[in-house]
């Protein structure tokens, strides 16, 4: 197992290196640069700026230089937000996105798994149709429409919550709901279908035939096995929502990290693009590793270490 862990970490680092390299190539390949604007800057001034940020050096030197800083944990200065560092931007904004993301994740898991179990247990009956109807609405209404509608009713029509901004618990509610809509609905559908798969398995029938209490069977066997796809989905989901959503942050004016994932590319803010990509890929790869270990906790028969030969 230790050997596997080491191999896994090693392959993760290698994957991150590839991500950095490809992103580096892509962002330099696309037209435009960080110091371009509607009003062209005089060439001499542009040269000053490029010298300042070492953009006048050949690309391979920039690449090696960047990597040597990354290894030391320094993601460099932002080109657009002058004076700020990428580390600073992440440190300031990640806590906001994380707070919202964890809230969203909790809603999605609890509501989604709960609704899915109920729907599966009442397959083909009213509770099933009701939950599946709402979860279909949930996946077909994207967060930007859901967010706008929530704001219209909860803040504007009924005046229950502040429309936007950040800082108090009330400010978390609407964005968390808007963000949780799709994952909740998806998890509910996922849980329902994999529960049904499990409920029809022979060992379930056997357990029921043995007269074990129904709730115990459902909890111990059915939910446990049905949770595997939910766990799978949780890895990328968590990585995505912890790093913030551009759309929801924009609608609710949340000072989170999601905005920078998008604007850094529009701004060609090279260091921010790379820094955030690295941050996200570490999170994603780490969480996916965690997901694989979670599989073995839920179903000890699962082997990660080797093939079947």
């Amino acid at each position: 197992m230790l050997g596997y862990l080491i191999r896994r970490i090693f392959s993760a680092l290698f994957a991150i290196l590839i991500v950095i390299t490809v992103t580096f190539i892509f962002m330099h390949a696309i037209p435009g640069g960080p110091f371009q604007s509607e009003k062209a800057i005089p060439p001499a001034i542009k040269a000053n700026i490029e010298a300042r940020y070492k953009l006048d050096q050949p690309l391979h030197i920039q690449y090696v230089d960047y990597l040597s800083h990354v290894v030391r944990g320094d993601l460099g200065p932002s080109f657009k937000y002058r004076g700020q560092t990428v580390n600073g931007i992440i440190a300031e904004r990640f806590p906001v996105s994380m707070q919202l993301g964890l809230m969203t994740f909790a809603i999605a898991i609890i509501a989604g798994v709960g609704a899915g179990i109920i729907a599966a247990l009442y397959q083909g009956r009213i509770p099933d149709y009701v939950t599946m109807f709402f979860s279909t609405i949930g996946i077909s209404v994207p967060s930007f429409i859901l967010g706008t509608l929530l704001m219209y009713f909860l803040a504007f029509k009924w005046g229950l919550l502040p429309a936007a901004m950040w800082g108090t618990p009330q400010h978390v509610i609407m964005p968390a709901m808007a963000l949780a809509g799709l994952p909740t609905a998806f998890i509910a559908r996922l849980t329902r279908s994999s529960m049904l798969d499990v409920l029809n398995q022979d060992y379930m029938r056997t357990a029921l035939a043995k007269g074990l209490p129904r709730w115990r069977i459902i909890w111990v066997h059915a939910v446990k096995n049905a949770i595997i796809p939910v766990i799978t989905y949780s890895g990328p989901l968590l990585a995505a929502i912890l790093t913030g959503s551009f759309i929801v942050e924009n609608i609710f004016a949340i000072p989170g990290l999601g905005k920078h994932f998008v604007t850094s590319i529009y701004n060609r803010d090279y260091t921010v693009i790379l820094g955030l990509t690295i941050f996200y890929s570490i999170l994603l790869i780490g969480l996916n590793m965690f997901v694989d270990f979670a599989y073995t906790l839920v179903d000890p028969r699962i082997k990660l270490t080797g093939g079947k030969e």
Partner: peptide, 19 residues
Amino acid sequence: GGRADNLMMRIVDILYSIP
């Protein structure tokens, strides 16, 4: 499973990570 799985899933991770 095993090494092949590790490789194939890292490719997925890489594609997920590139913006």
